[in-house]
Design a protein around this nucleic acid. Structure first.
Lengths: 257, 257
DNA sequence: TTCGTCAGTGACGTATCGTCACATATTAAA
DNA sequence: TTTAATATGTGACGATACGTCACTGACGAA
């Protein structure tokens, strides 16, 4: 006798999303440090027991939010990957899509950072942990694709003793470092007076690509203007939303004339 | 009538350090996610009220640990700064002192990362927050010094549209990104199979310096061998301790022959 | 109609937090 | 030496939040 299946997969997924969204709203309102399961339960048309069916604990919920957030990001990455233009430009574009994401969804970005802490991972379900690992691979896929195209069209050759994965990681960790240290959402890195995240990300990325010998080198082109118009074309809605929040990507302070 | 001063500054500081050390031991044993004030109080010859005199809460204690930890790091940085050798080599050395620190004091390193989260900062005392900001400046000082020497001896010129502070930040965020993503202490960055933190840090740093046009360029020297012997000379105790823990900096996998 | 299974509930036991009223120790003045 | 004033230390306690579990009700199979 097969046990009756009363709840379909889709409804479960939908409910999970509802809980996640409620939690995100609470984080936006009260800050991530004041998120409690009781508050989440109060926001949601389910009882505590039901919520705990989906997430084994607060940290597990946080990780699930982080995963959801990475899905959003991977969409941005993929759009950058698919854009026209040379590989190097698209890699820069991808890094900026990361920045756009951090500016547009600060609560989500915060969750991803927090979810990396052992505090969270240590208390989460295997399901969400492995889901998160899958998503990281998915993120890397777009990066990987761009690097491969750069290798194929000979604009990039592998530096001595480095393979594709290492190149991918270099780009990822560079963008990660700059954005997480400078994104205003994380109170870090004093002495950041006069540091502007979009400018530093731009400079760091280009220094890295120049160091790799990835053509066209900065001295041979004007990556800033190109980046600006690509962003306008590829992420018009996102940029508008950022503007609506009172922030704005500012390229005037460092455009090459 | 002047109020009697029963406790001198030094005794207070000493007690604070005792509490911090006890907490670090607990973190090493149980993981940072299981640290509770009750356990700390139980480990310490003071009562809860006294502990709360020093730290307004658990998060404040965590931030204080982070600050202590940054003091340890700034000593390593300073030693790298003072070493002989060209500026670029010492910058690389400094990045590796960061790695040594992350490997040698994983619990401390973890605390610094965790303390950056708004979860912690949002609940901490102004005193410890500003203390932390001072320490970040102190860390930057060593980096800043090396960059300035590079500028002075003309091995480095400022890239287009970048100032000293931006150069410093580039190096910091590069090292930060690579080490925090790859240090085994933080469960991050899947797909890191085959990524070796010391190798990636080495490559990333050199790509960055090459991108800046910082002499000597990689092709002109053997920075790997040079780095190795410098580390042996400057951090013999630390390297020995790392070895005693079963880990080891491995340069064989990527030395240029 | 009856029984078995499973989704859903929310009161409850436990853990941890941070406070506060009180106790003790130390110094200054009487 | 005694007394008053203040600094310092204590741990019991109320509040908050966590996660569980015994129970309810709904649905399908027999």
């Amino acid at each position: 006798m097969t046990p009756p299946k009363l709840l379909d997969e889709a409804a479960l997924k939908e409910r999970e999303l509802l809980i996640i969204n409620s939690a995100v709203l609470l984080i936006q309102k009260n800050g991530i440090e004041n998120l409690t399961m009781d508050k989440v339960v109060a926001q949601v048309p389910f009882s505590k027991g039901t919520v705990y069916k989906h997430f084994i604990g607060k940290e597990d919920l946080l990780l699930a939010i982080s995963n959801y957030s990475m899905e959003v990001l991977s969409d941005l990455f993929f759009r950058a990957y698919q854009f026209r233009g040379c590989a190097r430009s698209r890699m820069l574009l991808l890094n900026f899509s990361y920045l756009i994401y951090a500016m547009l969804y600060p609560a989500l970005f915060q969750c991803v950072l927090c979810a990396k802490s052992p505090n969270v991972v240590g208390k989460s379900s295997e399901k969400h942990i492995s889901e998160g690992e899958m998503l990281e691979v998915k993120l890397m896929t777009s990066i990987h694709g761009i690097v491969e195209e750069g290798l194929n069209d000979n604009s990039l050759s592998l530096p001595l003793n480095m393979d594709i994965q290492q190149i991918c990681f270099s780009n990822w960790s560079t963008a990660y470092g700059a954005i997480s240290l400078l994104s205003g959402e994380v109170d870090q890195c004093s002495g950041r007076t006069s540091l502007i995240v979009e400018r530093e990300l731009f400079n760091l990325s280009n220094l890295l690509y120049d160091g790799m010998g990835w053509n066209p080198l900065t001295k041979d082109s004007n990556p800033c203007l190109e980046l600006k118009s690509a962003l306008d074309e590829l992420f018009p809605e996102e940029l508008a939303k950022i503007k609506a929040k009172g922030r704005e990507l500012n390229f005037d302070s460092f455009s090459f004339s």
